[in-house]
Write a protein that binds this DNA or RNA. Structure first.
Lengths: 195, 195
DNA sequence: GCGTTATTTCGATACATTTCTAATTAGTAT
DNA sequence: ATACTAATTAGAAATGTATCGAAATAACGC
């Protein structure tokens, strides 16, 4: 249990991402995309260009069509496939640049914090508070993440709850309040919002 | 049409692109990336998170390490893996940069023959004839494709027409006849059928 | 209708990848 | 040394995927 991990992708997004990569991870399909980008083609033409049989091409095209990467149009007995370049662009932009990979990369920078946590937290207990303010904040943030947002505590309840992390509940409580994670009014404590 | 494209991904680049997608197209590896994005982990932790055995994780991590996607660090008897977010970012940027996507599009139309053509034909002119018979045939075939089927020429007319491809019309003409693409009878030339 | 052409579907096969177990290596501690 | 833990390697089994030939389908022209 590492602490600050956050779910970056929903299950749905994850599956979509996976399907996207799977379509692009095959040589034939990648080549088909290339050829179609130069203009629409029918199955036979593609088969000739790739030097594989029609059923193979047909099969790949069906997969690509399933995720909206290509469109078909019938002309006589032929089926003419066209790259949906808008979809392609949208997929690459959306999936890569923005939502997902960017998010992954961003959160991976948190590993500096992880290091601090590894040092000062063991088995869910805070061994000691670092003297260095920046590191101290990392620990306090980690602790704050564990406080339910929907609960109100008396000072006594909160202190007792804090002892599961460290005997020195008074210091923890003080830092939590000072850092703005907890608020006290009339002897009642509650978790406040702060990124 | 021309079959001779200009800016193109090299074969190596194409393969690299393929390998990149392949790394991301596996459920376990994608999950590993996700978990590592939340902080470094050792093999056992990842195995637990993915509910697969250690050797499996170890195997995937080795692949990912091979392309520089993760780094390792030993700590006691454990190996702690860490996502190389800079590499990840560089990869995604590189691959989806507009230029490369456009280039990908052209790469695939590079058949073996087209490679030969790229070397020996520039701007519609035949620079020189390759010595190697197989390559020579590719060039001659390309040239033959440009000869109208419904026309009959005197030797003089045909020679003159050939000079648009190369000054040495005599050599071109001879190869065309020898290879069976052109027939001559009583001083008249015409294009003959041949696959 | 019949024959022809382009494509798809089906089923089989070959090939590649993922995953496992068992054995081995490496690091630590007793 | 010996025992213990974590990870890797090797090799086999299981699973997945790409490709093909044969048969079915669809559109067309006669």
């Amino acid at each position: 249990m590492t602490g600050i991990s956050k779910e970056v992708l929903s299950e749905e997004q994850f599956d979509q991402l996976l399907r996207f990569f799977q379509v692009f991870s095959n040589e034939s399909r990648l080549k088909i995309i290339g050829h179609l980008a130069n203009g629409e083609k029918n199955v036979g033409e593609l088969a000739g260009l790739l030097r594989v049989k029609e059923p193979t091409v047909s099969h790949h095209l069906a997969e690509m069509k399933a995720i909206g990467l290509v469109n078909v149009r019938a002309e006589g007995t032929m089926r003419i496939y066209r790259l949906n370049s808008r979809a392609l662009e949208a997929m690459s932009k959306d999936i890569f640049a923005h939502s997902n990979l960017a998010a992954l990369v961003k959160t991976s920078e948190l590993s500096e914090d992880e290091k601090v946590l590894r040092t000062w937290v063991k088995d869910g207990r805070i061994i000691d508070l670092p003297a260095q303010e920046k590191k101290k904040q990392v620990i306090i943030h980690w602790l704050a993440d564990r406080i339910p947002h929907d609960r109100r505590w008396t000072e006594r309840e909160f202190s007792e709850w804090l002892t599961q992390f460290n005997e020195d509940y008074a210091t923890l409580r003080r830092y939590l309040v000072d850092s703005g994670y907890m608020t006290r009014e009339k002897g009642i404590y509650w978790r406040t919002l702060k990124a």
